[in-house]
Design a protein around this nucleic acid. Structure first.
Lengths: 343, 343
DNA sequence: CACCAATTTTACAGCGCTGTAAGCTCGGTC
DNA sequence: GACCGAGCTTACAGCGCTGTAAAATTGGTG
């Protein structure tokens, strides 16, 4: 069974290739008769357009790349879903590029060896310095996600991390907590995400007139729940006293919950815990996690909107968009008396 | 800044296009002098090959599609990661296609309107009948995942669900459980995954000489933890007595844990719970989930190996591969006395 | 030093589609 | 009935690369 080409359909229908193409693309100026005749030939021959040829002729691929550290990190998998849905809504397909937090892989995202793979890139860097992002020349439009510092040539979408962290602290303070810890500062995290959240945490304490205690800032050596569990375990074992905990993300919070439980510390009674990202992981944790909830859908649609504008020829300097967030209250840091609440 | 073409490099280096192409592809029969000269021209001009043109000329895209119900389902996001890693190892890029369990979307996976997008497809159907899979003619190699019944024209990779479920029951029985329930049969789940797990569950009971009780099989109306929580809540409220629970997947188990906790039923003391898929969701649940663990890495590499053989021209009938699984024991259904165990 | 085989390089015809510009139809006008 | 313009349709030159087959070069031999 040989591949049917546009030319074959044209011949069978006794028309030109271009007319067949017009029918395939629903070009309006085709007479009904002609359309019918061509469509019949298409159906009979089972013609399917060849995307690669179309791409070569048009110079558009209809694809975008989504470059993220890990696809199975709950936050990124949820974000991927929204991006994929939004992309498909506006006629793009998505190819996912895992950088695995590898600097070389991140560099490769912007400094690709080849062209014509995608029309644009949505990129959430983790290891890459903002300087470096700005320096690398890329020949494809880029929208950055996360808290990396701004690049002049790329757009950027994020939530207001400082405010969000402040609100988290404010919530804990409102519930009577005074010894509030922050988990976790990660070595090699070059993006400033953690920095901004830490800053907001400190700001929140200052707002509440609570003195800062550097001992309450817990470090973690990598982005796994195991590591965060270790950090919390060590902190508790070393006698650190705290009644509130703001975590850099839900995964860390999950590890923290585990360590606290193991240490016999009750959440939220003894320690109220706030996570970040509002993922399914936290939604079904026990106790379920109060968590900073970026509007992921808005994040996805904003990123895609900016990217499309660039693909369509916009060449201005990098734009910055802040999307909304909320604090989703659940069991781990409830409002008022702790009680079992679904979601 | 205009796009640099192969022809431009050829002209600059004073050689033929084909020689440049040979250098780009590390073709062995190029003299060092020539290679140096060409490479220099490539570097100076900043030449980057155009993938689309290459694809049109070779007929290969170097891409595969991964069609799954939801990318943010923990099992599928973890599987995606392994598939992406394995694919990149063997030189393929992955484009993810979410079917969202939509029959039309599933049909579209096999019955694509266009060609030349990917070289092959790894497809995990949920709604599609096996008959239908077999009937749809596709012009691209396909490997099926999950428990859909075999198709003559496609390969298929799965774990032995019946045995795995039996082992789960066996484990619970070994821990003294006798009233073992199964959660959840889902309406519209056409693949037979649940059927096979249910069958293994029943087989396990028979092996243990425990009479079957249809009242112990809990139904669920969709694939969400919310729904499974509802099912368990209703069961408990209706007075159903059980001391063991095998869940169709970790998400259901997570919902079950929530409902049980809410109802004041202690896990594992009162009810021991076994999940399925061994996802991060279950690893960090509280209590952490004992779970049937498919070897996802092996699953990914097997699927990819089969697919590559087909892409490379293998045309035999559909092959079936069973990959290994294990039962990962954690807190929700521990061995011996329940105790807090990390992981 | 002529000759041959093996190695290296070249020319060029596609791959299948779309954009452009030109050509054709056809009903309406005067 | 000749002419006009809007509406349809066509011919064909690319898009940028690779495979093929033929040409050029090289080195070894007698």
């Amino acid at each position: 069974m040989k591949r049917v080409r546009l030319a074959d359909v044209a011949e069978a229908a006794g028309v030109s290739m271009k007319t067949v193409s017009n029918v395939v693309h629903d070009y309006p100026h085709v007479t009904p008769d002609m359309r019918r005749k061509v469509q019949q030939a298409i159906d009979e021959l089972g013609y399917k357009p060849n995307l690669t040829a179309r791409r070569l002729a048009t110079g558009k691929t209809g694809m975008i790349a989504l470059a993220i550290p890990e696809i199975d990190h709950p936050y990124f998998s949820e974000l991927s879903r929204y991006i994929a849905e939004e992309a498909s809504r506006v006629g793009y397909r998505v190819i996912v590029e895992q950088t695995l937090s590898n600097p070389a892989a991140e560099r490769a995202v912007l400094n690709d060896r080849e062209t014509g793979l995608v029309d644009g890139v949505i990129f959430h860097p983790v290891r890459m310095q903002s300087m470096e992002v700005a320096r690398l020349q890329r020949d494809v439009p880029v929208v950055l996600l996360g808290e990396s510092v701004m690049a002049v040539t790329a757009d950027h979408v994020m939530i207001d991390n400082v405010v969000a962290a402040q609100e988290g602290v404010q919530h804990l303070v409102g519930e009577g907590r005074r010894r509030i810890a922050f988990l976790g500062v990660v070595a090699g995290d070059a993006t400033g995400s953690t920095d901004q959240r830490l800053l907001g945490y400190q700001q929140g304490l200052v707002d509440a007139k609570i003195p800062l205690d550097p001992g309450l800032v817990l470090s973690v050596s990598d982005f796994t729940p195991e590591e965060s569990a270790r950090a919390v375990r060590d902190a508790v074992a070393s006698g650190l006293v705290f009644d509130g905990l703001i975590c850099r993300d839900d995964r860390f919070a999950t590890g923290a919950l585990f360590a606290l439980r193991q240490a016999g510390v009750q959440v939220p009674r003894d320690v109220a815990v706030v996570g970040w990202d509002d993922t399914e992981l936290g939604r079904w944790a026990s106790p379920s996690l109060t968590s900073v909830a970026p509007d992921k859908r808005e994040l996805a649609s904003t990123a895609l909107a900016l990217l499309r504008e660039r693909i369509d020829g916009y060449h201005g300097v990098g734009r910055h968009r802040i999307v909304s967030h909320a604090l989703t209250i659940r069991e781990s840091a409830p409002l008022g008396a702790p009680a079992l609440q679904p979601h």
